[in-house]
Design a protein around this nucleic acid. Structure first.
Lengths: 255, 255
DNA sequence: GCAGAGTCTCAGAATCGTCTCAGTGCGCTC
DNA sequence: GAGCGCACTGAGACGATTCTGAGACTCTGC
């Protein structure tokens, strides 16, 4: 895990996000199969998804991916298109013979090859390009699971905190009825804050989840984007975003 | 233990805080593995954590850390990033092969090296920078354990003493429903007092637990912060913070 | 290739938190 | 009841953190 960087000092943090996991009707945890040959990425993903409360299994090549799919019977698969032994589409095809209709989230490199997977989203699958942010990846997975009807405990496309709502399907954000336009980064930051409403999040945590895993820039982007969000969401209203000096930020319903 | 600080004379102290330890369902104590090559720090930590009622094992290098992890099967690990033989992340990886999913609290030096650990909080692990205060470290450990579902005897994110409540997730403090804003130091001091409600704490004890272990300043900071806290918590109410002249302070429910 | 939007860096300004110092008050002991 | 210490608190210095404006750079769509 020599992945990322940037300079945040540790800061008193709550790392207590025991989030209520998305579940099967019978109460067992969601099962995710992660297939990637970069072991650091697989580790990072596994940790993040376990943290999400899900059960994770990993595979580093197409061969074992197919085998694991058979025995593990995952609810969703994260699949790198670039595997050493097999083409991603071949893996997909074989995997579907083992687990009919599993939704798949493809990981693709930057540009190129886009055409190879164009058409895939038509089948309900989806893809993200590397490097991605963990929040983005998790959001996509949740969307896939939602689509397959893994409705689960109160997992809705619409999130609400006080008079603030965020619709994951339409990307629409409203505060007290007013539509608010956000850029992609602002949106991701807000979603993360909302998913963890009333919980203090350190800048390090925010950076780790909302920014791409290879982000190497200045740490104060977080402050910057918090200030953008405030202008759009809190302007002229009871503030919902609060600074906890030396600790981090919290979003909570205005009193 | 030539670590610590400043000029409080030894003073009649209660060293009897047999606090109800966070436990496994079966009643056995929480197991913590502390890995650091500075033996003074390891000792300081071990004492503090045993005092917490936990079972502690120490290791001074990566090699033995991994071995100890295997045999000891800790519930949580405190791991210095700077070890003589191995990189902290390498230790983490090997340790995880021995004890799947143990949460880890990393210790890092000031800045620098930060790059090696960015991304870690994403998986639910956490870190503190040296020099830290013992209360902060313990709070983080408790948060990690809480997250892993080591729920145990009444260990909640919300603490209550009389009509005073403190929420460790949101950092929210209320007295009789009124929200009270505290600075970071005030908050830590209050948490310590609440964790030891009805117990007299000497200024030396408070200094040792709430201030960083290298604090070298004037001893009357404690008095100062107690007075800040009184203004915010006791103002105009039945006082909860009491001075025991020549002994220390107690926090207890207003009668 | 140009315009516009979005993202990020940098640096200065504003704000806030921490701690020291010193004076005052108050309780305890004799 | 007097005197001595301990405790409390106001003022202010200092340092750290956070905020924000200006601008560079990148990417996209036309």
């Amino acid at each position: 895990m020599s992945i990322v960087n940037t300079g945040y000092r540790a800061v008193p943090e709550q790392v207590t996000l025991s989030r209520s996991a998305l579940r099967h009707a019978d109460g067992s945890a969601v099962r995710v199969l992660v297939v990637d040959d970069e072991s650091t990425l697989t580790e990072l993903l596994s940790m993040a998804l376990r943290y999400e409360g899900w059960e994770v299994r990993g595979a580093s090549n197409g061969q074992s991916a197919v085998e694991t799919a058979r025995s593990f019977q995952p609810d969703v698969v994260v699949l790198d298109m670039m595997l050493p032994d097999m083409d991603g589409l071949a893996v997909l095809r074989q995997m579907r013979t083992q687990v009919a209709d599993v939704p798949v989230l493809f990981l693709t490199g930057k540009d190129a090859l886009e055409d190879r997977i164009a058409g895939l989203t038509a089948g309900g699958d989806d893809y993200v390009t590397k490097p991605f942010s963990l929040e983005e990846l998790v959001a996509r997975l949740r969307a896939l699971l939602r689509r397959v009807g893994m409705t689960a405990v109160r997992d809705d496309a619409v999130m609400t905190v006080g008079d603030l709502t965020l619709d994951e399907d339409s990307h629409e954000v409203r505060r007290g009825g007013d539509l608010i336009e956000l850029t992609a980064t602002e949106y991701e930051l807000l979603r993360y804050l909302m998913r963890n409403a009333k919980r203090v999040l350190s800048k390090a945590q925010i950076l780790d989840r909302v920014w791409r895993y290879d982000f190497g820039g200045q740490a104060n982007v977080v402050e910057l984007y918090i200030s953008y969000l405030r202008k759009k969401i809190d302007a002229g209203r009871r503030p919902m975003i609060h600074t906890m000096r030396g600790v981090g930020y919290v979003l909570k319903p205005a009193p």
